[in-house]
Design a protein around this nucleic acid. Structure first.
Length: 578
RNA sequence: GCCCGCGUAGCUCAGUUGGAUAGAGCAUCGGAUUUCUACUCCGAGGGUCAGGGGUUCGAAUCCUCUCGCGGGCACCA
């Protein structure tokens, strides 16, 4: 139970008792004050409600404070500044609340299922090559956000949109065909400009040889292309899935774009939109700035995106008569809505920032404002090695792949560091730092805190008679014995976990979890260090078993919450780090 | 030109969707330091929250303008 929610409800009760049940309580905040000397909880209740009641904020605050004073969990109430009510909570309250963590363990603060379905689309890397550094951040972000939303009670569906329609797949097939000829002994020379040059297509060339022998060589392209197209696609997807497994990412579904074309879903969604008057024939104003070389003004079939918040209406049909990518996107998001997803999230790369408005417009339009889409943009990642930024060139296909990155640093640093920054802020990924065993390296620092808990438990098993972490019932510990300010400090942080996680879920911001975990780890390490100078604060006090049990309950609880958080991030929780 | 994001300590960044004297880590400076297997620890200094104007009891946060950086701007996927 979130203690801030708890105290807010107490305040609401007081106001209700005062006869103000009809007020809008939603603007009341209960939160930790910036300045610790102001107590544990500050509320703006009086300032927010003074006006509708025709009272001065301070007068109302004093009234509320008077009632709060009678609450046994509250040690002290002050009215300060323009009308803040500062509450100091009795230590006994914390230790009694803390009992809930000891009882619920990793589940502490986890809300009940809310019965809502949500679809999260992420990664969606083009199926033309391996997963590379450009996809990693969005992948980790999306997967962890999915975990986070599951934690907070959503029924989450992870989906990968496979862009398997259009020209790039033809190019891919042609590139594979070159490798096929190479396998048959032809000298193919340099891979031509515009083709996919990567080595990863060589085994595909061999696969084609194995399946078709040399008979494709003499065929015209129109005949061999459909034959090898599916083969190339499926081996690309297989490769991508293997790459994603390196990060422990699994999708519930891979949604094929070409399927939308083939099944008539695009025709259907377009017909539906026409029927609703969302489509018209018209001429767009030419784009500002540099005009494309082959620009020609013409009448097009347009979606009235501007009616739904976009800047400009969007074309649905290309000059050759086929559907635009955008038309497929409409059908796709419509399909998600038809599947019952009224909450949708798309995770995109920084280069797709310009798509946010039109995507939101799509979801609003196809659902007639019943569904909502949030688009999260992940900024680029700069790889830093030996203090230098690693440059990559897209033309040569010289991307650092996930596989390479993974083989150098492993899963945990990748996942943690990709989430150790707000998604819309650029991120430097430092190869050297993430493998360092020091406080500078947040991954190590947090994981080490978890390992340290287990180390202490092993130590306790040796020192104490009849103690085994897995069998000991920590709920029997006398938690009221935890009275030192730094112990209470750790308890307070642990009790903040539900609020942190719920806010992170609400705003779709998993990075808040990593920052919280880092702070919790720092606090725990600091408490451990205190025991060096003040032996009476050590966790294991051999002459006082009762106190030791209480402290071990605290130590154990740190690991519960670290695990709850690291599970959301998808980072391992080692029991030792030797 | 237009749209989106960003601009916070010397550096890298948080900032609980409007709260009180704006925080953390690194770096700098000043002390302490051989252990519950492990990362040393404690403290201090450091700010025009890019800049101007506005909204109100109160703004890093909301509105507006300016500057700077990044991304995007018919039909590609």
């Amino acid at each position: 139970m979130d203690i801030f929610v708890h105290f807010k409800s107490i305040i609401v009760d007081i106001l209700t008792d005062m006869g103000h049940a009809d007020l809008d309580f939603s603007r009341i905040n209960t939160e930790p004050p910036r300045d610790k000397s102001h107590g544990d909880i500050a509320t703006n209740a009086a300032m927010v409600l003074a006006k509708p009641l025709g009272l001065k904020p301070r007068d109302l605050a004093l009234k509320i404070a008077e009632s709060l004073q009678t609450n046994a969990d509250i040690e002290k109430v002050d009215v300060a500044g323009p009308g803040f009510i500062n509450i100091s909570v009795a230590d006994g309250f914390y230790t009694s609340r803390f009992a809930e963590i000891v009882a619920r363990k990793e589940q502490f603060g986890k809300p009940e299922a809310n019965g809502k379905k949500l679809i999260l689309e992420f990664t969606s890397a083009n199926p033309t090559g391996p997963v590379h550094i450009g996809h990693v951040r969005g992948t980790v972000f999306g997967d962890s956000l999915a975990n986070l939303l599951q934690w907070s009670g959503y029924d989450v569906f992870r989906e990968y949109y496979v862009n398997d329609a259009g020209g790039q797949i033809v190019t891919l097939a042609r590139s594979a065909f070159l490798r096929y000829r190479e396998c048959l002994g032809d000298d193919i020379g340099q891979i031509p400009q515009g083709y996919y040059p990567g080595e990863y297509l060589k085994p595909v060339g061999q696969d084609i040889v194995d399946k078709f022998g040399d008979k494709l060589k003499s065929m015209p392209e129109a005949e061999w292309l459909p034959l090898i197209r599916d083969l190339v696609m499926s081996s690309m997807m297989k490769m991508i899935k293997q790459d994603l497994e390196l990060l422990d990412v699994k999708f519930d579904n891979y949604f094929s774009e070409s399927e939308l074309h083939a099944s008539g879903a695009i025709d259907k969604s377009l017909a539906d939109m026409r029927a609703r008057g969302l489509v018209y024939e018209g001429v767009l104003p030419p784009p500002k700035g540099q005009l494309p070389d082959d620009y020609e003004e013409r009448e097009q079939t347009l979606f009235r995106a501007t009616d739904w918040g976009d800047d400009i209406d969007r074309p649905l049909i290309k000059s050759d008569g086929s559907y635009t990518y955008f038309a497929a996107d409409i059908a796709y998001h419509r399909d998600k809505y038809m599947r019952g997803f009224n909450e949708q999230i798309d995770v995109l790369g920084a280069d797709h920032g310009g798509y946010v408005k039109r995507l939101k417009a799509i979801v609003r339009a196809v659902s007639n404002d019943e569904a909502e889409l949030d688009v999260k943009i992940c900024q680029i990642v700069k790889l830093v090695k030996n203090g230098e930024v690693q440059t990559m060139s897209k033309r040569s296909g010289n991307f650092i792949t996930l596989k390479e990155l993974h083989s150098e640093v492993g899963k945990d640093p990748i996942r943690f560091m990709m989430l150790y920054r707000k998604n819309e802020a650029p991120l430097d990924f430092d190869y050297d730092k993430v493998t360092e065993k020091s406080r500078d390296n947040p991954v190590f620092y947090v994981q080490y805190a978890h390992a340290r808990v287990h180390s202490i438990m092993r130590q306790a098993k040796e020192t104490l008679a009849n103690f085994d972490m897995d069998e000991f019932d920590f709920t029997k510990a006398n938690l009221a014995l935890l009275t030192d300010s730094s112990e209470i400090g750790v308890i307070k942080s642990l009790l903040n976990w539900p609020k942190t996680a719920n806010v992170a879920a609400e705003f779709h911001e998993p990075h808040r979890i990593s920052f919280y975990l880092y702070e919790l780890a720092a606090q725990f390490h600091s408490l451990w260090n205190k025991g060096k100078e003040m032996p009476q604060l050590r966790f294991i006090v051999s002459e006082d078993e009762e106190l030791t049990h209480a402290r071990l309950a605290l130590v154990r609880s740190v690991a519960y919450i670290l695990k709850a958080g690291l599970d959301i991030l998808g980072v391992n929780t080692p029991k030792e780090m030797r």
